[in-house]
């Protein structure tokens, strides 16, 4: 409750989520003029994780641009590079600038540079994430013979051997997170000088019909074993907050609208930032699962991003 009072949203009272379709013309008008900045998730909001644009979303983005809203895409998807995000937008005739995309791999690189980081990195993430680090001059622990079956203690010992002098452990989405990798990360983190950084840290991710377990669950295991918490630079990490704040210096958090499909990572995170929140149901979460009164309850709900054009 205390939490809700400190929230800077302009939606006055911590009330039940409002469905856009239930608002009258005047309320919609008020809603539309209540924000200048829009932070928008991509997967499940702009396009389906596994495929095409969600019908109507490109038009809605165009309309937000026409209305002069400051538009930034805040994705947790490092499987797809910043360039590929831009290309994907371009295919729908949307001109989105590099600066308009907040992407965990890029955020992690920026953070390392801000720390004047030098040294070897143990990175548990996708190939595209690692390529970005390498292209920006960072050095990674060479890949193990990944996927080798561990049959006995001898195999286990060699699979978890952490012989390198590692100065940072970075964890993001790793499609093949394994016990051996977690053990190596844990061992590197025994050195208090070794940085611990996480990108995307969703506990669960909307995928298919519902939610699947996300990278946050595995990051927590490393954190618990190592007895220390990472700097989390993807959603819903506190480390991302100052980075987003710099993007709306002129307007207060209450005049920011955050649009996402994940109650656990988008909405909880945005509420902590004091932003207004709009949950779209195009990612996998259904109306019955929308929380009514906890930290993951959004201010507004609608079926998909395209509704912004339909209703407004």
């Amino acid at each position: 409750m205390n939490y809700l009072q400190t929230k800077g949203g302009s939606t006055s009272t911590p009330s039940k989520p409002k469905y856009l379709k239930d608002l009258n013309a005047e309320q919609l008008q008020t809603f539309c003029t209540s924000f200048d900045t829009v932070f928008c998730d991509c997967d499940g909001v702009v396009w389906y994780t596994l495929g095409d644009f969600i019908p109507g979303s490109a038009d809605a983005i165009r309309q937000l641009q026409l209305q002069g809203k400051q538009l930034t895409f805040v994705t947790n998807n490092s499987i797809c590079s910043v360039e590929r995000h831009i290309q994907r937008f371009a295919r729908a005739q949307l001109k989105i600038d590099k600066q308009q995309i907040v992407h965990p791999a890029q955020t992690v690189c920026d953070y390392l540079k801000s720390q004047n980081f030098e040294g070897l990195i143990y990175c548990l993430a996708t190939a595209s994430f690692k390529e970005l680090l390498l292209s920006q001059g960072f050095h990674l622990v060479p890949e193990q013979q990944d996927g080798v079956q561990i049959k006995n203690l001898c195999d286990l010992r060699s699979a978890i051997q952490a012989e390198h002098q590692v100065k940072a452990v970075i964890i993001d989405v790793d499609f093949n997170m394994s016990l051996a990798k977690i053990m190596r990360a844990y061992q590197y983190l025994q050195n208090p000088q070794c940085l611990f950084i996480a990108g995307a840290a969703d506990g669960v991710v909307p995928f298919g019909a519902g939610e699947v377990i996300g990278p946050g669950a595995f990051i927590d295991i490393v954190a618990l074993a190592a007895g220390r918490q990472p700097v989390v630079l993807g959603k819903p990490g506190a480390g991302l907050m100052p980075i987003l704040r710099e993007r709306h210096v002129g307007s207060p958090p209450a005049r920011v609208l955050f649009i996402g499909d994940s109650p656990g990572s988008d909405i909880v995170f945005a509420r902590q930032c004091g932003y207004q929140t709009l949950l779209v149901l195009s990612g996998g979460v259904c109306a019955a699962d929308v929380a009514l009164d906890d930290q993951s309850a959004p201010d507004y709900v609608t079926d998909c991003l395209g509704d912004l054009t339909n209703f407004i």
Binding site: N176, S178, L179
Partner: peptide, 26 residues
């Protein structure tokens, strides 16, 4: 590929978890 490996229509009625040196996120 993740979808192919984790979504499965088999009528599984019990999940058992013990020590697995080859435990992975999928």
């Amino acid at each position: 590929s993740l979808a192919k490996h984790i979504f499965d229509r088999e009528p599984v009625r019990a999940v058992i978890l013990d020590v697995d040196f080859n435990l992975t996120s999928p």
